[in-house]
Structures are given as C-alpha cells and as structure tokens.
Design a protein around this nucleic acid. Structure first.
Lengths: 104, 104
DNA sequence: CGTGTAAGGAATTCTGACACG
DNA sequence: CGTGTAAGGAATTCTGACACG
C-alpha cells in the first residue's frame, strides 16, 4: 500500500486541506461516505485518498446532491473496481494454469 | 510536491510509525536533524519523508553515531542534492541558449 | 437533510526543567 | 550526550444533543 492510502492524518489537518469543517467531515462518515481509522485513543486518521475523496464529495454537495445519492455512486464505483480486480486475477489464474510456474 | 513530502502527520502517529518516543523525535529536531512544520496551534506536522528519515536516524543512533555526526552527513547529502539540481538547470540553460524555444 | 454550536470530558501536544549517566 | 519523566497548560478531538430550516 502506498503513502496515498496510509491513514495517518488527523481531522484538524484534513479540515485545513479540504476546507471542510470537522462537523461536515464527521457527518460524511456517519453517512458512510468516508471510513477513517482510529488511534488507540479514538482520534480519527485519514489518508490522502480520503482527502481527495472528501474534495469530490464537497463538489457534489455544492451541486445539491444528497449524501444518499453520493453514497450510491461510491458503492457503484467500488463494485466496478472490485470486478476489475477479479477479472485480472482470473486471467492470471488462466495464464498460470497453462504455463505453470518457473524458477528464475 | 508529492504526498510523500506534505507535512501532515502529527507526532503521535509518527511515533507509532517509527517506534520512536515523542521525546526522541523532538530531541532530533532540537539537534537539527528533522524539520517539522507547525499547525496554527503549534503542533508539529511531519511528512512521510520525515518518517523515513527518522527511521534512518534511528538506525544510526543504534550504531552509536552521535547526532552531531548524523547532522553533518545529512548536510553533505543535502549539498550533493542541491549541486545536482543546479547542474541540471545549467545544462538546460545551455540547451535553451543553443536551440531556443519552439512552439509545439 | 445538512450543518452550526455549546457542553463536558478525554486524549494529544507543548515547553522548560530535573535526573541520570 | 541522549533520553525518561513529572508538571502545568493549551490545543485537539470525541460524543450526544439541541437548534434551524
């Protein structure tokens, strides 16, 4: 996993980076749009990917789209990505079945 | 600037990532080995690059190298990098002087 | 529905200092 | 020199709730 996906940024910094209030950021979590991790003490930790996603969410909110709809879009995207990954794995499986493994 | 160099990680998370105590991390700053930014409220913010550097520092400390020496090494590295960059810029300047600029 | 806010508490971070070796 | 620690204070974050629209 790259730095982009490591959850290390606290909500205050995320707020600075995105321009969103803490309240909004927590609300979008409540609505299942974003999924931070937690420190031992319970503080939220976000990744740069999360920050990017929050900015996309902010754009859609400005367009008057409801969190419910945004959530559905995100789930669809996620499903597409998952399928894509599966396809790749199955293809690799075919390749391995036909050619087997070799020592370098 | 890439995500790797954005200063966004608070000291607690850096501590988790590096295994170093807060005390050590702050001490290495005092000794000019590391240069975090600050939030408006005064909390330190580090980048992933800083985290990597701290791990290198930790290794050298384990080898019994003093902060003074580590600092000198870091300054040398920095100088090397700066010179490298300068060379590139001057070369590009030569190229531009000889061939001029063109519209695509 | 989306967001601001005051409330009270807990976790986080900061600095300067003393201790030890 | 490098690091732990107790001290006191300030900044940060958390949750649940009330308010408004």
């Amino acid at each position: 996993m790259s730095y982009k996906d490591k959850k290390v940024i606290t909500i205050g910094v995320v707020s600075e980076l995105t321009g969103l209030t803490d309240r909004k950021i927590r609300y979008y979590e409540e609505k299942k749009l974003i999924f931070p991790e937690r420190t031992a003490g319970g503080s939220r930790k976000y990744s740069f990917s999360d920050v990017e996603l929050l900015m996309k969410i902010a754009d859609k909110m400005e367009d008057g789209i409801q969190t419910r709809e945004i959530r559905q879009e995100l789930v669809k995207e996620q499903n597409r990505a998952t399928k894509e990954e599966l396809r790749k794995k199955m293809l690799q499986g075919q390749i391995n079945a036909h050619f087997g493994f070799r020592k370098p």
